[in-house]
């Protein structure tokens, strides 16, 4: 079993609950290929009516920021509250803002 676990690559799974929402990362699964990854994702992560769309992507294909670069990447935005769009009126017809 451990041998096959090693030979099946890891996939990250993103599920969209409904049209209009984003795909959200829900977890990861192992699969032999892309087609199997979609099916495993369906079986593991949409059992409770959670989704209408699935993305599965090989984990090793994701470029991720490094924890070592955290300060240089994210600290500079920590004191710039004026970048929030809170200084103008939102039309009544735009919900959930």
């Amino acid at each position: 079993m451990s041998q096959t676990q090693e030979s099946w690559p890891l996939y990250e799974v993103f599920v969209r609950a409904r049209r209009g929402l984003n795909h959200v990362h829900v977890g990861s699964i192992h699969a032999a290929d892309d087609e199997m990854a979609l099916r495993h994702a369906r079986d593991v992560f949409t059992r409770r009516n959670e989704g209408v769309s699935i993305w599965a992507v090989r984990s090793d294909l994701i470029a991720a920021s490094s924890p070592g670069e955290k300060d240089a990447f994210f600290a500079p935005s920590g004191d710039k509250v004026y970048r929030h769009p809170t200084f103008y009126q939102i039309p009544d017809t735009v919900p959930h803002m």
Partner: peptide
């Protein structure tokens, strides 16, 4: 759902209708 309005997906009556717990 009205296919012409992308916001409709966000304003279903059930406030718990988030991805983490399937609803409907």
């Amino acid at each position: 759902m009205d296919d012409g309005n992308a916001y409709d997906g966000l304003v279903e009556a059930d406030p718990d209708a988030r991805w983490a717990f399937g609803t409907g």
